[in-house]
Structures are given as structure tokens and as C-alpha cells.
Simulated scan of single mutants.
Amino acid sequence: MNICVFLSAADLDERYTGPAREFAELLGKGGHTLVWGGSESGLMKVVADGVQAAGGRLVGVSVDFLAASARKDADEMVIARDLAERKALLLAKADAVAILVGGTGTLDEATEILELKKHGKTTKPVVLLNTAGFYDGLKTQFRRMEEEGFLPVPLADLVFFAEDAETALAHLVESVGA
């Protein structure tokens, strides 16, 4: 299965790198392909290293202005002309999506896939790995959106919140049937 992972390219501490590394190792050992932003820095590097070390494939989609920091030894690397094309290519190459900790770029990617699901433009499963409670506030906001009628479909149909790597991957595998 090709799993797109949206996450930070920032260098983060062990409370975030540990669970990301665990998720990466599970991906690789499961024979899955990592589809990611292609960066050779921060949490993106941690996950790519973990997937590769565990025997998984790497498919990166970088963007023109970040191409210099793209991973050189990926199995496949595509350079998009802008961020919109990058997101479209990442999603096109994936069977499922996992969202790990990240900043505004990760949040942008997450909300785009959820908006596509809301409008029936994709049925790909999406899991949000809530490492160290990082997305507790977002979960609360999504629940409020659902309760107050801002979501035309149940929140559970848009995203699955997982508290650990094993649960996150199990949900994706079960949802895709891989």
C-alpha cells in the first residue's frame, strides 16, 4: 500500500520523533511505500530513514523551491512546480493518508484531504496520529464543527484519530483492505 504521510520537516524532540520512527518502521516492515514531501530534514528525514531501514520504498514529491533539500536516495522523486501541484501529486500517488505532527504546512495538507473527502472527491482513508496529545485541540474543534452543523458528513467518515502508531497503521490497512 502507498501511504502518504504529511508531517513536519522541522527538527523535533524525542516525544515526537520516537512515535514517528515507530510508525515508519511499521510501514517499512509491512512492505508499504512511503509517499511524502521528499525532504531530507527534520521529522520527514526521521520517517524516511525508518521506512527505508525497515525495507519499505520511498516516493518523494518535493517542490521546486525546496528541491535542493530533497532526498537523493529515494526510490522515486518528483519535483512539483508549486505547493498546490505537490499536494495533488502526493494524494494521487497514495492509497491512504497519515497525518503526523507538523506546522501550518501539515495543517494545510490535512484540511485539503478532509475537504476533498467531505465533498466526495476521494474515499482514501485518513488517520491523524495524535502524538503526545498534539492534535487534541484540533479534535475538539472538529467535534464542535460536527455538533454545530458545519460538517455535512460525520467526522468519523472524514478522519480517524489514533493515539499510537500501531493503531494508526492498523486502521489504514483495514480501511484499504491491503
Rank of each mutant, 00 (worst) to 15 (best):
A80V: 06
R81F: 00
R81N: 07
R81A: 12
R81L: 04
L83H: 10
L83V: 13
A84M: 11
A84I: 12
A84G: 12
E85G: 05
E85K: 06
E85I: 05
K87V: 07
A88Q: 14
L89D: 02
L89C: 02
L90R: 01
L90A: 01
L90T: 02
L91I: 12
A92H: 11
K93V: 02
A94H: 07
A94P: 03
A96R: 01
A96D: 03
A96S: 12
A96H: 04
A96Y: 03
V97M: 08
A98M: 06
A98V: 11
I99R: 03
I99L: 11
I99D: 04
I99C: 14
L100V: 09
L100P: 00
V101K: 03
V101P: 13
V101E: 10
G102W: 03
G102I: 03
G102T: 08
G103C: 08
G103S: 08
G105S: 08
T106M: 06
T106G: 04
D108A: 14
D108H: 04
D108S: 15
E109C: 02
E109Y: 04
A110E: 05
A110Q: 07
A110K: 01
T111E: 10
T111C: 12
E112K: 02
I113R: 01
I113S: 02
L114K: 03
L114M: 13
E115W: 11
E115T: 15
E115D: 13
E115V: 09
L116G: 01
L116D: 06
H119S: 08
K121M: 13
K121C: 04
T122L: 05
T122Y: 03
T122Q: 05
T123D: 15
T123A: 15
T123W: 01
T123C: 08
K124Q: 13
P125T: 07
V126H: 01
V126D: 01
V127Y: 00
L128W: 14
L128C: 14
L129P: 00
L129Q: 02
L129H: 04
T131F: 02
T131C: 08
A132N: 15
A132C: 11
F134Q: 06
F134S: 07
F134A: 10
F134H: 15
Y135N: 02
D136A: 14
D136H: 10
G137P: 04
G137I: 05
T140H: 10
T140Q: 14
T140P: 00
T140R: 13
T140W: 04
T140M: 11
T140N: 11
Q141E: 11
F142P: 00
F142R: 04
R143A: 13
M145Y: 15
M145E: 09
M145N: 12
M145R: 06
E146G: 05
E147S: 15
E147M: 08
E148H: 09
E148K: 14
F150R: 11
F150K: 10
F150P: 03
L151D: 00
P152V: 11
P152A: 12
P152Q: 12
P152T: 14
V153L: 12
P154K: 13
L155K: 07
L155R: 05
A156E: 15
A156W: 06
L158C: 07
L158E: 07
F161D: 11
A162P: 05
A162N: 09
A162M: 10
D164N: 15
A165E: 09
A165W: 03
T167P: 00
T167L: 01
